[in-house]
Design a protein around this nucleic acid. Structure first.
Lengths: 240, 240
DNA sequence: AAGTGGTCTAGACCACTCA
DNA sequence: GAGTGGTCTAGACCACTTG
């Protein structure tokens, strides 16, 4: 009659979140084996079926891998096969191309209107602004403006983050990343882009604009990129 | 119980496929209610848990919707919220933009090398080739070359398919569509594109190249498009 | 042989919808 | 109140991996 249910989420969801929290906290390191289903069920005081459902969810969220006869393993978010998640540029044999990152500038400033909108920040929050260039086999193919919520990445400027992408940053701060969304359009290169990429002024480039959320839905990165796909490099989209 | 596990796939997968087949065959029309879990389990001679797992799969594949207290419903693949699946162009308020399709040419021919590769056809298979233009609010923004395996769409030229997209075609032929993949790049408009789109010769456009598979993994459509995103139109990509 | 995850079963109870 | 899907439990057995 009264809906307690609105306040108590299903047990298997609670268990999933508890496990995710412990993974993010580093309780089980990437690559490590977790206890078996039965033991975990015992630890949490739930039935094996409920624990299984929680683990199924975590596997579908790519936090775990399970292999029959072996065990349950914590996935490494920075492993090669997971890097592709936010990287839609592909090379000749379909390999993801992240490029070598070079951070040209990094500043901590008060968030301005567009940043507050895209990162869902309140009036007086601060952001880190980065200017970066990416090179593949020595050739710069993309420049990007990145904004990161200062609250999520405390002390970022003191760290040496020059070559680090969002994946490694999140890893270093114990943040689990979730969904992202990117828009692709076409336009004329900005002045600093055509400068850094050594293309003709205002030559056509791909504009990329993406926001990546944390696993629990808070915006973690806003990136605007200008990209000149070199030969055999293309942007790829899977439709499930 | 139904089959020996040693020689067959898991029971819940068999049940899922049997249900999918009956849905594709039109046994339950889009929007119709299906029998409840218990009855279905009885029909198939499996336990309720196994039937539930099969239904869960079908729901994750977007063939079904289930609502507590209401029942299990067959989804309509051409419904507004499902059209977006293969349509990554969005308008101002995030609405999918399919545009009005106008088929300019349609031919049945022997598949050539690139078509055989992309559509995984054998040496002597045939394809339908279509040339189309898409317009939004009266303005053409995209032209496309489409290739369809003749084996999947028998008698296509005799039908009036001028305004039909792959979604409606598949529906008409009782084909369930599955995953797709699209690549996006940048280039100079071809002659017929700049002609149809009334842009300057060789002006920059988005090149779109996609293949859509059927639910069971056979290529169903290869499309190459040249697109001039007008106004607030943009290409969007979700990263899960 | 021992241990793991994967499949399958059977049933109780809860939450939601609608007549 | 009757019917539906959603949650949770408890346990048997299978398939795979490793020592």
């Amino acid at each position: 009659m009264l809906q307690e249910r609105l306040f108590t989420r299903p047990l298997y969801v609670q268990v999933r979140d508890a496990l995710a929290k412990r993974i993010a906290a580093g309780e089980w390191k990437p690559g490590a084996v977790m206890p078996n289903e039965g033991d975990l069920a015992g630890q949490f005081g739930v039935s094996p079926g409920t624990m299984r459902k929680a683990l199924d969810l975590l596997e579908s969220e790519r936090l775990l891998t399970r292999r029959q006869g072996r065990g349950t393993f914590v996935k490494d978010p920075t492993a090669e096969d997971r890097v592709v998640r936010y990287c839609n540029l592909r090379g000749p044999r379909g390999k993801a191309i992240r490029g070598d990152i070079n951070t040209l500038e990094i500043n901590e400033v008060a968030a301005e209107e567009p940043e507050r909108l895209r990162l869902q920040l309140t009036q007086d929050e601060r952001v880190y602004r980065l200017k970066r260039a990416r090179a593949y086999e020595g050739v710069a193919f993309m420049v990007e403006d990145v904004a990161l919520p200062a609250a999520l990445f405390p002390g970022l400027v003191e760290r040496n983050v020059s070559p680090l992408a969002i994946l490694e940053l999140a890893q270093a701060y114990g943040i689990l990343l979730g969904k992202g969304e990117e828009t692709v359009s076409i336009g004329a290169a900005s002045v600093w882009a055509s400068d850094a990429l050594r293309t003709a002024k205002a030559s056509p480039v791909l504009f990329l604009d993406r926001v990546i959320l944390t696993r629990d839905g808070r915006p973690a990165e806003w990136r605007r990129g200008e990209c000149v796909p070199t030969r055999a490099m293309h942007y790829i989209v899977g439709m499930r």
